[in-house]
Amino acid sequence: MDLPDLWFVLISILFIGFFFLEGFDYGVGILLPFLGKDDRERRVIVNTIGPVWDANEVWMITAGGAIFAAFPQWYATLFSGFYLALVLILLALIVRGVAFEFRSKDENPRWRRTWDWAIFFGSAVPALLWGVAFGNLVEGTPIDAQMHFTGNFFDLLSPYTLIAGLAGFCVFLLHGAVFLSLKTDGVIRQRAEALAERLWLVVVVVALALAVANYAYIDIFDEIGVNPGVMPVASAAALLSVGYFLRQKQFGWAFAFTGLTILLSVATFFWFLYPNVMVSSTDEAFNLTVNNAASSQKTLEIMTIVALVFVPIVLIYQGWSYWVFRKRVTVESRLEY
């Protein structure tokens, strides 16, 4: 495997890790005002992700850094092209991160309500926009021969990308609801369990819409024909299994399979995208690919060594931190946030 290909795979893995982990963070953040009926309950919900949200978000920052290091042209075109979408995501992430830390540090109910809504919007906006952004990568955006994005913000909003955004949003919601059913107890757990079952049906409908949109709006059909291959089918099967496990009240398995659904969907996305990293709707010849967007061999070699050494270490201690905080959070727990 050539190094640009390897880095394409590594970046796919970083995004899988990001959407798997931050996916339930977003879901929990969006559900916060609805599943927590009083302040104590809302504190419980925030504290389920309190010890992990920050490290989860680092997956996104690392993915961004990896794109910059391994594919500078991709980084430059993507970040300058999707400018306003990224501004919105950044603003959302800023208020959201501060809100976790600040909300419970003052007793004033208005203060807390304000930060709760900051968490809600701070989670909802990126949960929706990441799907829109990824939809644009495969659908194609106006890019010229100099790799410059020539469109505007509204070019990014098409029926296809909005469906992709909605699909991401709903999957994160489901992922978050199942997470809460595992991490809380009592009434919040009951509410989360009941909601997860209902949400699952919504996700199936939206996923179906996305599958149809894939054939209707983008040229996947030309590329692969009617049979989409193993990965997307497995992704759909994983999603269907979630429904089974929810009905059996096996929430651990349900969480594993919402996670698997996310993993396989993101993997499918990158599978279809390859060897492109950004599709040009202006002319196919202007596509950014793993080769024309990549860094030099030397930089990729250095980054490969660094990644091979440190990614396993990170996985070990981040995994360990989940083990430390494995207990359910309840209204009786000591709450830091």
Partner: peptide, 19 residues
């Protein structure tokens, strides 16, 4: 600059931000 500048940024995330 990406060939040079991106690497320390990615390394910063990998070595420091996770930690």
């Amino acid at each position: 600059m990406g060939d040079i500048f991106g690497a320390p940024l990615a390394i910063e995330a990998l070595l420091a931000f996770y930690l």
